[in-house]
Amino acid sequence: MIVDPVTLMVALITVATPVLLAAIGELVVEKAGVLNLGVEGMMIMGAVCGFVVAHHSGSAAVGFAAGMAGGAALAMLFAVLTQLLMANQVASGLALTLFGLGLAALIGVGYGGRDLPAVYRPFPEVWHDIAVIGPIVFSHSALVYVALLLVVAVWLVLTRTRIGLVLRAVGENHDAAHALGYKVVRIRIAAILFGGACAGLGGAFLSVVRVQNWLEGMTAGAGWIALALVVFAAWKPWRVLLGAWLFGGIAALQLRLQAAEVGVPVALLDASPYLITIIVLVIISSDRSRAALNAPAMLGRIFHTSG
C-alpha cells in the first residue's frame, strides 16, 4: 500500500484537533446569531498564553486554562464592541485578528524555545500497541479527547436542552426571543466568550502539544480554516467534526502522497484540501432535499431595542 491507513488516521485526528476546537466554538457563536471573524486572533492569543503559563506553572492543564482565558479575554473585547456598542461584526472581527496577532507577539517576546511540561496521554502505554485501534484510538494526548467530547456536548446542548433552544432562538429571531423575555445581549456575550475560550484552547493545543514552542504567527491561518469549517458544516456540530477530519485527512494524505512519490503535481496536491472541501460542499448543498442553507437567520445582524 502506498499510504498506511492507520498512521494516516492517527495523523488526521491530530491535524484536525486545533481547527476542530476553534470551529466548534465559533459554531456556538454563530448559532447565537453573531459572526466573529477574529478566530485567528483568539487562537494566537490562546497559543501564547497557554505556552507562557504552561512554562511557568509546569502544568499543561493550567496552560490550557490560560489559553482559554486568553482567547476569552480577546473575545470579551469583541463582545463589548459588537453587543454593547453595536459595532459592525465583520470589521470588528478582522480588527480583533490584527490586534490579537500584535498583542500575542508582544506577550511572547523571549519565550521561544523555553521548556514545557510533558504532554499527558490518558491511556496506558501498552494500549497504544494494540493493532489498528491502539494507535488510532488510544495514543492521543488528552486534549484530543476533550475536543471530541466537546463536539458531543455542544451537539447535546444545542439539540436537547433548554439552553440550546434559547441560544438558537436568539440566533434565529432576536426580536421574538427578546419579546419572550430572554436577555439577548447577555446570551450572545456568553456565546462569544465560549467561542473565544474554544479558539484559545485550539491555539494552546498548537503551542503546548503540537509544536511545543512559541513562535510568532504560529497559527498561520488555522483560524480561517476554522471559520470555513463552520460554514462547510452548515452549522451542525457533527458535520464540523466530519469537515475537520476531511480537511485534516486530505492535508495529511497529500503530504503522504508526496512522500510516496506518486506522480501528481505537487502544486495540485498542495491545493487539494481546499479544492476537495469545495467540491464536497457543492455536492452536499446541491442536494435538493436539503434546500435550506441553515445559516442562523440573524447571523451578523445587530440587535437593539429601545426599551
Binding site: M86, A87, S92, A95, F99, G100, G102, H304
Partner: peptide, 26 residues
C-alpha cells in the same frame, strides 16, 4: 518600537473607530 506594537496600535484604532460609530447612529 517593535512591529507587533504597531500592529496592536492599528487594531486599537480600528476598535475605537468601530466603537464610536455608536455615537453617530444612537
Amino acid at each position: 518600537i517593535p512591529a507587533p506594537a504597531i500592529q496592536a496600535f492599528q487594531g486599537m484604532l480600528l476598535f475605537f473607530l468601530l466603537a464610536l460609530d455608536v455615537l453617530a447612529n444612537y
